[in-house]
Amino acid sequence: MQYKLVINGKTLKGETTTKAVDAETAEKAFKQYANDNGVDGVWTYDDATKTFTVTE
């Protein structure tokens, strides 16, 4: 399945996608991506759209 990440950071904004077997695996990949880019915020997930959002 394909999952999307929407980033609403202080210095980084945008979107990225990943393919993963489940939401938990996608979340780990997205959190690593956010961490690598210095984004630390509040996470939400919408199962209907398979979209994670992180807001600083």
Rank of each mutant, 00 (worst) to 15 (best):
T49W: 04
D47S: 11
T16D: 03
T17P: 02
Y45N: 00
F52K: 00
A34K: 01
G41C: 02
A34G: 03
Y3Q: 00
T53L: 06
N37Q: 12
A29S: 11
M1T: 12
T53V: 07
Q2S: 12
A20Y: 06
N8D: 12
G14H: 15
A20Q: 05
K10P: 11
Y33N: 02
V6M: 06
K10T: 14
K4L: 09
K13W: 07
K19Y: 15
T25G: 09
K19C: 09
N35V: 15
T51C: 05
N8V: 15
G9N: 06
T55V: 09
K31S: 04
K28R: 14
D22C: 04
D46I: 05
G9K: 05
T11L: 13
V39Y: 06
G38T: 04
T55C: 05
G38V: 04
Y45L: 02
V6R: 07
Y33V: 05
G9S: 12
T51H: 03
T11H: 13
D22L: 04
A26G: 02
T11R: 07
V42I: 12
V54G: 00
A34F: 03
G38F: 08
F30W: 02
E27D: 05
A23T: 11
A26V: 03
K4M: 08
D22A: 04
A48T: 14
Q32L: 10
T55A: 05
F30H: 02
N35Y: 13
D36F: 09
D46H: 06
K28T: 09
F52V: 02
Y45W: 04
A48V: 12
A26M: 02
K13L: 09
T51Q: 04
V54R: 00
D36P: 02
L5S: 00
V42P: 04
Q2K: 08
N8R: 11
V21K: 13
A20E: 04
T44F: 11
K19H: 12
T51P: 00
D40W: 12
E27Y: 11
D22S: 10
D22V: 03
E15P: 04
T11S: 13
T11P: 05
T49K: 08
T44Q: 08
K28S: 10
F30E: 00
M1H: 14
A29Y: 15
V21P: 14
T18P: 02
Y45H: 02
Y3P: 01
V39K: 02
D36E: 14
D36G: 06
W43P: 00
I7N: 01
K50E: 03
Y3L: 01
E27W: 14
L12W: 14
T11A: 10
A48P: 06
D22M: 04
V42Y: 13
F52M: 02
E15A: 06
T17R: 06
Y45D: 00
K28Q: 11
T18A: 08
N8P: 03
L5K: 00
G9M: 15
V6L: 09
D36L: 10
T55Y: 09
T51A: 04
A23Y: 13
D46A: 04
Q32F: 05
L12K: 07
T16K: 13
N37R: 15
V21R: 12
G14W: 15
W43T: 01
K31H: 10
V6W: 05
T18D: 03
Y3G: 00
K50D: 03
V54W: 02
L12N: 11
T55K: 05
K10M: 14
Y33F: 12
A34Q: 02
K28G: 05
F30S: 00
L12I: 14
A26R: 00
K31G: 03
D47I: 09
G14D: 13
K10W: 14
E15S: 08
D46N: 10
L5F: 05
T44D: 11
A34W: 03
V54M: 04
K4W: 10
T49V: 06
N37A: 15
A29W: 15
T49L: 09
L5P: 01
T53K: 04
T53P: 00
T49Q: 07
D47G: 08
D47C: 06
T44R: 07
Q2F: 12
T18F: 12
K13H: 12
K13A: 08
T16Q: 11
W43C: 02
K31M: 09
L5Y: 01
T53N: 05
K28Y: 11
A23E: 08
A48N: 10
K4R: 14
V54T: 03
N35I: 14
Q2E: 14
L12F: 14
G41E: 01
K28M: 13
N37E: 09
Q32H: 08
V39C: 04
T17H: 11
T25P: 03
D46V: 06
A29R: 10
V39Q: 03
K19T: 15
Y45F: 07
D46G: 02
T44P: 00
T49G: 06
N35W: 14
D40C: 07
K19V: 14
